[in-house]
């Protein structure tokens, strides 16, 4: 079992013929992911990496039965691509693209929420992987291994770091999800925790958060009130200065939230251990698993 993607996921890659799209699509195919279509306007009817290319997502879905969209489209056109995937009826879309204008995301995220047909993961995320089944994104596939730990993270390389330590400690993963580092993620910690809670194969969860926003606090509230599975968390940016990019007005929107102290306190109050170094995570996960079984 796993969440969101598995061996039955049939992927259409938007922006597949570009440099990033090509490189990562070939890596995904090598991993065993079923990439059934690519979309690049103007290149419909051609083939790239052995995969048929279409002009529009609608066409790709009708002809290949693709059920997940993956977006490598450059930032100026990425939100358009997200909405195209929604209109084509795809229930799940993963946006890897970094640097999508925030206002584009405000419009896209709110339309997807209002229509309620499509879940968006990202933008600016590493993607999602169910080890041994499907990899949709830019993570190095070989560091992951199947097992009982669900992982959700706002950071790419920090995820790799922690997964590498988990894997080396013999702790495999059900699914690892990068929700991305943008201020407006399509999917948030809370959404993924609910899915892990419902997933039979997931026995423990690792949550990797960072400063800014208050999604960690919202997640902590859910863990405290409703979650039965053990969670181990890590928060990066504990010593970072506040409000560097947000300016005065930005720092006030969440009141006292968004600081590392607020996140760590909220998580600890929910019974979640929050170590200060990543190396302690495998041992804490092992303890949590032993208690849970």
């Amino acid at each position: 079992m796993s969440i969101l993607v598995d061996r039955n996921s049939k992927v259409v890659v938007c922006g597949m013929t570009g440099r990033e799209g090509s490189f990562h699509t070939s890596q995904m195919i090598a991993y065993g992911t079923k990439v059934v279509a690519g979309v690049t306007p103007g290149k419909g009817g051609t083939e790239h990496l052995g995969v048929p290319v279409f002009d529009t997502v609608q066409d790709a879905v009708e002809r290949t039965g693709a059920n997940v969209g993956l977006i490598f489209v450059p930032p100026p056109f990425a939100a358009d691509s997200i909405l195209e995937c929604e209109d084509a009826g795809l229930p799940f879309v993963v946006a890897i693209t970094e640097g999508i204008p925030v206002l584009d995301m405000v419009r896209a995220v709110n339309r997807l929420k209002a229509n309620g047909k499509t879940r968006l993961l990202g933008g600016n995320c590493a993607g999602i992987i169910t080890p041994g089944e499907a990899k949709l994104g830019i993570m190095p596939g070989h560091i992951f291994t199947p097992g009982p730990v669900g992982l959700v993270s706002r950071s790419g390389t920090l995820t790799y770091e922690i997964v590498w330590e988990l894997t080396n400690a013999g702790l495999g993963q059900t699914t690892a999800v990068g929700i991305g580092g943008d201020p407006l993620p399509g999917t948030r910690f809370l959404d993924i925790l609910q899915m892990f809670e419902a997933d039979e194969a997931t026995k423990a969860v690792v949550l990797v958060g960072e400063i800014g926003g208050s999604d960690e606090e919202i997640a902590a509230e859910y863990i405290r009130k409703e979650m039965t599975k053990p969670v181990v968390a890590f928060i990066s940016g504990r010593t970072a200065p506040p409000g560097k990019r947000m300016g005065h007005a930005g720092a006030i929107i969440s009141g006292g939230k968004g600081t590392p102290q607020s996140k760590v306190e909220a998580l600890e109050a929910a019974g979640v251990p929050v170590p200060t170094d990543t190396s302690s995570i495998p041992e804490l996960v092992r303890e949590a698993l032993a208690k849970a079984c």
């Binding site: 950071s155 580092g181 200060t276």
Partner: peptide, 27 residues
């Protein structure tokens, strides 16, 4: 790049990993 006004330079890949390195140096 963000200046933090200390004296140990830090370079890493990925925002989360760099923030984490900064935390460790401070610790």
């Amino acid at each position: 790049y963000v200046r933090l006004k200390g004296d140990i330079g830090i370079i890493g890949n990925g925002a989360g990993l760099v923030m984490c390195s900064i935390d460790e140096v401070a610790a």
